[in-house]
Amino acid sequence: MSLAPLPRIIIEPLVRAALAEDFGLAGDITSAAVIPSDHRSTVVMAARQPGVVAGLDAAELAFQLVDPAITLKRHLPDGAVVEPGSVIATIKGPSRGLLSAERTALNFLGHLSGIATVTAGIVAAIRDTKAAVVCTRKTTPGLRAVEKYAVRAGGGMNHRFALHDAVLIKDNHVAIAGGVSEAIHRAKTSVGHMVKIEVEVDTLDQLHEAMGEGIDAVLLDNMTPDQLREAVSIVAGRAITEASGRVTPMTAPDIAASGVDLISVGWLTHSAPVLDIGLDFIEAAGRNAAPLRRTAQAFLSL
């Protein structure tokens, strides 16, 4: 399945907010003081470690919003696998704008590529099973749409986007409602026919109770592979089965082998390390090219 880009209307407010945070009340005073206004440069955006690319739309928009004269040519798309030295894009334009936008662009690209990379690692670990990897709502405030997009770039799938997407009855809901059956009954009498209902269970007894009420999906929380296999047998295809808890690239194969449909992993979005991507200076045109080459190289490494 091809990776559909996010609409600009979703990405632009995030990039504008990030640029505004960086520019403050006076803009990039360093580049304004050091770089002549008519100076132009060419840089390449390159990977410094292996991974999967995600976030090029946000990165490109950061440059364009700072200076529309900047152009970015992509050599690889989001979802592409990169090795150290892989050139992702070439960027040309006024040097001041390049230096002013580079950190915001790299912040988005490195963060989202990091999410795509760890997602791809889990996906690869379970490639021989039917299970799919999904993310959760454990996202950076304000960045949920782009972080969930990065999961898709890494070959994963998305769980619900927000509280209004679907009903997910968790342990605290059950405790307050007075039981699994009562919580499901209340949900069914309150939401419309288009809304899916999923229930989190910690034990096989709870699973039996939930399945007796008829639900769309069941979240099997912190169960062992043996318990998961038994749970899949109990469900017998009557609902989507989702495993969560203690998922790593090492544990994922055994979890997936139990026969579950989905494996949800919160740390894909809340703890993925940044993928190291840098801007490497290629050439400087115009006056004072030699000293400016050294200046640009110094700034682009920050």
Rank of each mutant, 00 (worst) to 15 (best):
M157Q: 14
A116S: 07
T241G: 07
S86F: 07
K130G: 13
V53L: 14
A120V: 05
A153F: 07
L163G: 07
S31Q: 06
A145K: 11
V82S: 01
L56W: 02
G192L: 13
S271H: 15
D280R: 04
L143C: 02
A125F: 01
Q64V: 11
A183Y: 02
S113D: 07
G51L: 09
V174C: 00
A132W: 09
G27H: 08
D38M: 07
F299L: 15
I88Q: 04
L112N: 03
A124F: 00
D261F: 09
D78R: 02
L207P: 00
M45N: 05
D216E: 11
T129R: 00
G51S: 13
T30A: 10
A69W: 04
N107E: 08
H270F: 12
V167H: 09
Q64H: 14
R74D: 01
K92V: 12
V134W: 08
R186V: 10
A272Q: 06
E283F: 01
G114V: 09
V43A: 05
H185Q: 13
Y149M: 03
L72V: 15
A175R: 10
A239W: 02
V66W: 00
M1I: 08
H39M: 15
A101D: 04
K196D: 02
L262Q: 04
S31V: 11
D171N: 10
A145L: 14
D221N: 13
G259Y: 09
G214P: 02
P5I: 08
L65S: 03
A32G: 07
A252E: 03
M45Q: 02
S86M: 06
G178K: 06
A175N: 11
I88H: 06
I70F: 03
V260F: 12
M157D: 04
A58E: 04
D261I: 03
G259R: 09
V174E: 01
E230F: 00
L204S: 04
I184A: 05
T90N: 05
I282Q: 15
R186K: 15
K73N: 09
A285H: 14
V191M: 12
L168E: 05
A62L: 04
F299K: 05
A59L: 05
R40V: 15
R48E: 15
G286M: 10
A217S: 12
T189P: 00
E12Q: 14
T269W: 05
T189E: 15
